Simulated assay, not measured.
Amino acid sequence: MPTDETANIADLSYEAARDQLVRVVAELEQGSATLERSLELWERGEALADRCEQWLLGARARLDAARNSAPDGAAQ
């Protein structure tokens, strides 16, 4: 089973991606990582942020679809 660090980002739930992103940011903020590690963290953080955004955009699309399919005035 992959660890958080090696998990395929595309397979992560919103919550898992968000939690990993929080850990990445915390490690970067400590400032104790090597330059190479900092770059790896930055790249993973960017990918995790993109994954979170994909989830949020998908959720928004589902909500919009639900609102549009509701009878007039029912989902206001």
Rank of each mutant, 00 (worst) to 15 (best):
Q20I: 02
C52R: 06
E40A: 06
G31T: 00
E40L: 08
R62A: 11
E40F: 11
A59T: 14
A16I: 10
A49I: 08
G58N: 03
A26N: 03
R44I: 06
E15Q: 05
L39M: 11
G31F: 00
A47K: 08
Q30E: 10
W55Y: 10
V24A: 00
W42I: 14
G45K: 02
A47I: 07
R37T: 08
G45M: 04
C52W: 01
A49N: 12
A33T: 10
A33M: 08
V25N: 04
A26G: 02
E46V: 12
R51S: 10
E53W: 12
Q54R: 12
L28R: 00
S32N: 13
E29M: 05
E36A: 09
A10M: 10
A61G: 11
L48T: 01
A10V: 11
D64I: 15
T34R: 07
R37F: 02
A7M: 12
R23E: 04
A49F: 14
R37Q: 08
A49E: 13
L35W: 03
E29V: 08
A61D: 14
A47Q: 07
A26L: 03
S13E: 08
R37N: 06
D19N: 03
R62L: 11
V22S: 01
D64E: 15
L21V: 04
L56Y: 09
E27I: 05
E53V: 14
